[in-house]
């Protein structure tokens, strides 16, 4: 379904839920829309939608929509994208993840269980936003699902790994935050001076590696 959003953007709605297969279709369509026609400015994938920004001095809505519909006909189930896979080292608990204990207690499991459950599955970067480079990843195991905290913290440290509802994410910058903080990664998610400023891209597949298990390889970074 294609709808205008204002006079300079077009919203493609492929569904209405958080669902890995649906989100893969969004990223597949987004991939088909790279190398665009003149007047298409940029695309923003989200859970089940893709927003296409266009220049109304170059294209009408109908022209932009026609181009998108044409690309959508190439979007069938046989179209497979191979996502990038990234491993993210995480130091869980203590000062790195001050909410690990709280999460464990309220879910009736041990902190070690939280670490194991959080790090054993692969997540998809469904979309990015909030602050530059923040990946919204899912889907979290049901045993870890918690609502956001009631009063957001005014300062969460860059690199903090967090969970909320069915999602997990990492704060790229020191910023306020309302998610449960369970760990910290030494990886830099956003470096505006770098050739590749962002560690993640929408559609990537991510696996967390608990740092404890790497301790013997001296990969532990000091905070």
């Amino acid at each position: 379904m294609l709808k205008p959003l204002g006079d300079s953007a077009l919203l493609v709605q492929l569904g209405d839920e958080i669902n890995p297969a649906l989100n893969q279709r969004v990223h597949a369509l987004n991939a088909l829309l790279q190398n665009p026609i003149h007047g298409i400015l940029e695309t923003v994938p989200a859970y089940s939608t893709l927003l296409i920004h266009y220049d109304p001095l170059t294209l009408t809505f109908d022209q932009a929509a026609h181009w998108v519909r044409d690309k959508m006909t190439q979007l069938d189930d046989s179209f497979h994208r191979t996502p990038r896979r990234l491993e993210v080292p995480v130091r869980y608990g203590n000062a790195s993840g001050p909410d690990l204990e709280t999460v464990a207690v309220s879910k009736g499991i041990s902190p070690a269980d939280v670490i194991r459950i959080h790090s054993e599955r692969e997540y998809t970067v469904y979309m990015m936003g909030f602050t530059p480079g923040f990946p919204y990843m899912g889907t979290l195991d049901e045993r870890l699902i918690m609502p956001r905290i009631a009063t957001p913290r005014t300062l969460v440290k860059a690199g903090t790994v967090a969970i909320a509802a069915s999602q997990t994410g990492i704060y790229p910058l020191d910023s306020p935050g309302g998610w449960h903080l369970i760990g910290w990664t030494p990886l830099k998610l956003f470096d505006p001076t770098s050739e590749t400023p962002f560690l993640f891209s929408p559609g990537d597949v991510v696996k967390f590696i608990p740092l404890e298990s790497l301790e013997s390889n001296s990969l532990l970074f000091d905070q």
Binding site: A46, Y47, S48, G129
Partner: peptide
């Protein structure tokens, strides 16, 4: 509503 793209003036 699931988060989705928005633009100037939304």
């Amino acid at each position: 509503l699931l988060s989705e793209g928005m633009t100037l003036g939304s």
